[in-house]
């Protein structure tokens, strides 16, 4: 049990095996999330992100270990739990035959806390003029935005977003990201699952890397990049008429014989330097390229 009132989610020694396939998907993970934090859950495909999120939400049963959320063990909660949390799955869950507005009104009616200003929500994600359109005529991005406001319309304390920007164009992705930051400013707690390292870098206060059901690191993106990533110098030169690409670690560049040799003997086309990115950290922890 936690004694800090600011602790919204506290996971300890969580283990989970899918009964049907016998797949041990989550393998003893620990982390906690405080109030007002945007927590990124990162990892390659099949790592266990969705599984973890579904366990916390309660769509999967039969876990071992502890999932303490809002001061109470997950399996002790009844359905009033959902007054406090908002969920947007990676797949938009909506009534296709109903209009956007009908969708929100219908689902909204199940909550105690009802929004009195749907138009404002529609407007914030650029759907105001489409609110009378049937969802089956929406594009993927429109569905994603509608699904997003659906998940937050009852002003939950904790929000779970699975790949909230996937399939969105940069403008719409920006809208969603701004909305997430806006909610953080309002003191909401956000659990975010993504493959997208740029999104994670822009939004998350802390990130966790999960790979094959095990957490390998939990820290701020800044610390992780500092510790595990390295700044580099990328050089492009000509060798026997062929174009060659090479990267070198920036910190030890002055002592690098190969680098010096290239500079002295080859015809250089370009030299760039770059910062360490979360992507480098991702690859280091997971040993895999981004999908």
């Amino acid at each position: 049990m936690s004694n800090s009132t600011d602790l919204m989610i506290n996971i300890s020694n969580l283990n989970f095996t899918y009964l049907k396939s016998g797949k041990h998907a989550i393998n003893g993970i620990d982390f906690s999330i405080s109030k007002g934090e945007v927590f990124g859950f990162l990892g390659p495909s099949g790592a266990g992100k969705t599984t973890t999120q579904r366990l916390i939400i309660g769509l999967l049963n039969g876990y071992h270990g502890n999932i303490e959320i809002l001061g109470k063990e997950r399996n002790k909660w009844d359905k009033s739990f959902f007054e406090e949390i908002g969920v947007a799955f990676d797949f938009p869950n909506l009534y296709l035959k109903l209009t956007a507005e009908e969708n929100l009104k219908l689902i909204g009616s199940y909550y105690k806390n009802q929004t009195n200003n749907l138009d404002e929500l529609f407007d914030e994600v650029g759907l105001l003029k489409d609110k009378k359109t049937k969802v089956e005529n929406f594009s993927k991005g429109m569905k994603m935005r509608l699904n997003f406001i659906r998940s937050i319309m009852h002003s939950p304390k904790i929000m779970f977003f699975d790949e909230p920007t996937s399939g969105l164009d940069p403008v719409n992705a920006r809208i969603i990201k701004d909305k997430i930051l806006d909610m953080r400013r309002k003191g909401k707690t956000i659990f975010l699952t993504t493959h997208n390292m740029t999104v994670a870098e822009q939004l998350c206060d802390r990130v966790a890397f999960i790979n094959e059901g095990t957490l390998s690191a939990v820290d701020t993106p800044g610390n992780l990049m500092l510790e595990h990533g390295s700044a580099y110098v990328k050089i492009v030169y000509e060798n026997n008429g062929l174009k060659v690409n090479k990267s070198f670690d920036l910190t030890s560049i002055g002592y690098n014989q190969e680098f010096k040799h290239i500079l002295e003997t080859k015809k250089i086309q370009t030299i760039h330097s770059g910062e360490a990115t979360l992507e480098d950290v991702f690859i280091k922890f997971t040993g895999r390229e981004l999908i």
Binding site: I57, L59, K79, S80, F81, F82, E83, I85, V87, F89, F91, P92, N93, L94, Y95, L96, I107, Y110, Y111, K112
Partner: peptide, 15 residues
């Protein structure tokens, strides 16, 4: 198929 079942599940509506 439309994901409405999981949607209703994540609201306070009781089973």
């Amino acid at each position: 198929e439309q994901g409405i079942l999981s949607l209703t599940y994540i609201t306070p509506l009781k089973i």
